[in-house]
């Protein structure tokens, strides 16, 4: 097995692959990331041939690890990097139990965090990535970790997976070409390219910060932003969490604290520039 150990936020990964190319691509994509603390990874993600004979003969890549989904769809080897990255996502999505995990993006400025939630395809990843290139520190484009005891947000700055039109958008604003992974064509998610978060986001990944606002962005013509009640915010956040129930009472306390101390706002935005402008407006109102 080819192997790479690395740390993303609080997660110390051991990543394994039956093939060399995906691991080399992962090493380039995650250049600059620290090794696990004390050289001790505690979570394993791996990709392997679906069947032993499928290693070289029309290879079928299976997504495996300490935590697995039974009906995961195998992928082709040219999408090996995507398969490895998904195996890593699966470990935190299914395995995280220390922090309350929200399926959302988040950015930080002056120690205060804006969380961008919404189903996949609502543009939260792209908006988070763009904000990360315009004066905000990207905490994550996909997984927001809330510490039960303190309510603080921990960063999980994984490589951002840009899809279809978002690829060109970020190519226009990110000068450093090395931060991009290879362009992967016709993956199950369409065309896809990974982008390594800005050096600042990696260097300061252990700096926690206080949540100040939860946004629910959706594509559409810019309409009047709409606040929401605490109970509704609580319900929406629990639906947007992969481990809310599994944390039991600590999950309840953490989520109730978030939903009753941080405002939740819906807004529609026509395009990325419009979306970023609206976020800056909210930030100004909150003095961030």
């Amino acid at each position: 097995m080819y192997r790479l150990d690395l740390r993303v936020g609080p997660v110390g990964y051991r990543v394994g692959s039956a093939w060399r190319r995906p691991i080399d691509a992962l090493r380039r994509l995650y250049a600059g990331y620290p090794a696990p603390d004390e050289g001790l990874a505690t979570l394993t993600a791996r990709i392997e041939p679906e069947k032993p004979w499928r290693r070289h003969l029309r290879p079928q890549v299976a997504i495996r690890g300490d935590f697995e989904l039974p009906d995961a769809v195998p992928m082709t080897l040219d999408h090996g990097l995507l398969a490895i990255e998904m195996a890593m996502n699966l470990q935190i999505a299914l395995g995280e139990r220390r922090h309350l995990l929200l399926h959302a993006g988040a950015v930080e400025r002056n120690g205060r965090v804006i969380i961008l939630t919404g189903e996949s395809g609502s543009g939260k990843s792209t908006l988070s990535a763009l904000l990360g290139e315009h004066g905000w520190r990207l905490l994550s484009d996909e997984f927001v970790l809330i510490e039960p005891g303190t309510g603080l947000v921990r960063a999980f700055p994984r490589a951002i997976s840009l899809k279809n039109a978002a690829i060109a958008e970020l190519e226009r604003v990110v000068a450093d070409r090395d931060r991009f992974g290879p362009l992967l064509r016709a993956t199950p998610k369409g065309d896809l390219r990974h982008l390594r978060p800005a050096p600042d986001a990696i260097a300061r990944m252990d700096e926690r910060a206080m949540p100040a606002l939860v946004l629910f962005p959706t594509f559409g013509h810019a309409s009047q932003a709409e606040g929401m009640g605490q109970a509704e915010l609580f319900a929406l956040l629990t639906q947007g969490s992969t481990n809310y129930a599994a944390l039991g009472e600590r999950g309840f306390e953490t989520m109730a604290r978030l939903a009753t101390t941080v405002p939740g706002v819906r807004f529609a935005y026509p395009d990325s520039a419009g979306g970023m402008a609206i976020v800056e407006q909210f930030a100004a109102e909150l003095g961030i």
């Binding site: 009640g229 609580f234 629990t238 129930a245 309840f252 009753t260």
Partner: peptide, 19 residues
């Protein structure tokens, strides 16, 4: 454990682990 909000009460039911 119950948390009161403006419009509803959030109740954690320990026996079932449900909210």
């Amino acid at each position: 454990p119950v948390v009161t909000t403006a419009d509803m009460r959030l109740l954690f039911h320990r026996a079932s682990g449900e909210t």
